[in-house]
Design a protein around this nucleic acid. Structure first.
Length: 441
DNA sequence: TCTGGGGTCCTAGGACCC
DNA sequence: TCTGGGGTCCTAGGACCC
């Protein structure tokens, strides 16, 4: 008998034994010994993958998805002329070099990334780096459809899911059958496989004792990866990572940390609590201290209500408050109408009306105003937003205008005017009428 | 040829009330 | 009259995330 063959048999036997022991242990582990297992699932190149299902002929090519609706509409034309989508010839797809406008890249395929283009880069800049790249407009309704589909697959298997946006979720594996086996790998594999069967899309999963670590773990093996992180993996697998890998540490915090000589999570873990609080404040300092040690006891948020609803738009060219008054006014009214429509469609009313504008130099300001009554009415929003606009300097040219409604409340048949203890303002008492009628009813 | 759009949460100061 | 909390709401800006 060939020795390699023997090795192979021994190895198989050993693997089977280990597996049997693992299964035996998980079957016989009492409920109280269950370990908290939280998964983070992240779709692989979500938008691009959805587009490739539609246009398989683009597979392997440099493709960029992005641009503003307006500018992209002009380019989508060639895509509508023909027969089945998968038969559209490559020459009929719009090219990045033909784009003019202020859009940014939302997603780029790996082939496109080779040229140095990537998310958030301006399309005009990207066009210089990779003019031949194909450009597809962003199609949110389509992505939302796929988003719903993959989330439905998950909740069918594991009901405790936290929605983290269009392509990400957290899942509580702790009490789901298979959720404890191999640290969660068995369940992760089942979910991955079922999502692929049902949608044709792939995803990566990280399973860990909490959300913080699960989020980092899901990035370890992209694409189509599964990573299992246990408490004891902290020093080997988490500490070598850059602090920026912690969800919540962005570019600013990273720069400050680097200024203090802290690059990795391990560096961060060397600092004591008082030092971190001195430098970053009570709350952030204490949070960083825990995060560096892999501690995170946040529960999954299974349902939530929106806090605000807004619409904003960047103009194709900068506009002046006086010179482009008519155009700005029309855009402003349209934004208010859109926000009102969104509120009504989703069944909310709001009390705080706000505007946002961004000047040509990219500096932004906001103004808001809280009304005495909840509203979802376009005219009311337009009036209040108009008052906000008057409180803002308008000498400089504008590049963006936005309208926001906050302090939301679910719209019901009779809770509409549920203003909390309408304050009797000086103006109201001076006129007398408003105050007395409020008291009468 | 710079730099989208839709969100959440935190901070910090001031008003106002107890 | 002076002094001092705490709590809540409102507003503006900013960091961060998807």
């Amino acid at each position: 008998m060939h020795p390699d063959f023997l090795d192979c048999r021994v190895a198989t036997l050993l693997a089977m034994t280990i597996r049997t022991v693992t299964i035996y242990e998980s079957l016989n582990r009492p409920m109280s010994e269950k370990i908290r297992r939280i998964a983070h699932l992240d779709m692989d190149a979500f938008y691009a993958s959805v587009e490739l299902l539609r246009y398989p002929q683009l597979s392997g090519l440099p493709v960029v998805i992005g641009g503003t609706r307006r500018a992209a509409d002009a380019l989508i034309d060639p895509l509508q002329q023909e027969k089945p989508l998968h038969r559209i010839a490559l020459d009929d797809f719009p090219r990045l070099k033909d784009y003019t406008g202020r859009g940014v890249i939302t997603t780029a395929t790996y082939a496109a990334r080779q040229f140095g283009v990537g998310s958030a880069m301006g399309l005009m800049k990207a066009a210089r780096l990779c003019p031949q790249a194909l450009l597809l407009p962003v199609d949110f309704p389509q992505y939302r459809k796929y988003s719903k589909a993959f989330k439905a697959v998950i909740t069918d298997i594991a009901p405790l899911m936290e929605d983290r946006g269009i392509d990400e979720v957290y899942i509580d594996f702790t009490d789901v059958p298979g959720g404890q086996r191999e640290g969660g790998r068995v369940l992760a594999r089942l979910i991955q496989k079922t999502i692929f069967e049902q949608t044709g899309l792939s995803c990566s999963v990280g399973v860990a004792p909490n959300k913080l670590l699960a989020k980092m773990a899901s990035e370890f093996n992209k694409p189509k990866g599964i990573s299992i992180v246990l408490e004891q993996d902290l020093q080997d697998r988490i500490w070598p990572l850059a602090c920026r890998k912690i969800n919540g540490i962005g570019p600013k915090a990273e720069a400050r940390l680097q200024g203090l000589g802290i690059r990795t999570i391990g560096d961060l873990a060397q600092k004591d609590l008082d030092w971190l609080i001195d430098h970053f404040g009570q709350k952030t300092g204490a949070w960083m201290f825990d995060a560096a040690r892999g501690r995170d006891d946040r529960p999954l948020v299974l349902e939530s209500e929106p806090v605000s609803i807004s619409r904003e738009t960047t103009f194709e060219r900068d506009l002046h408050a006086q010179r482009d008054r008519a155009e700005l006014g029309a855009i402003f009214t349209r934004l208010c109408q859109q926000v009102a429509d969104d509120l009504q469609r989703k069944g909310y009313v709001g009390k705080t009306i706000g505007i946002k504008l961004r000047y040509a130099d990219f500096k932004s300001v906001t103004r808001d105003q809280t009304l005495e009554r909840y509203t979802a009415d376009a005219k009311t929003i337009r009036h209040s937003a108009g008052l906000c606009l008057k409180r803002v300097p308008l000498q400089q040219a504008l590049r963006l205008l936005g309208v926001r409604v906050g302090s939301l409340h679910r719209a019901g048949p009779d809770l509409q005017p549920k203003a909390p203890a309408p304050p009797v303002s000086d103006a109201a008492s001076a006129t007398g009428v408003a105050a007395s009628s409020d008291q009468l009813f």
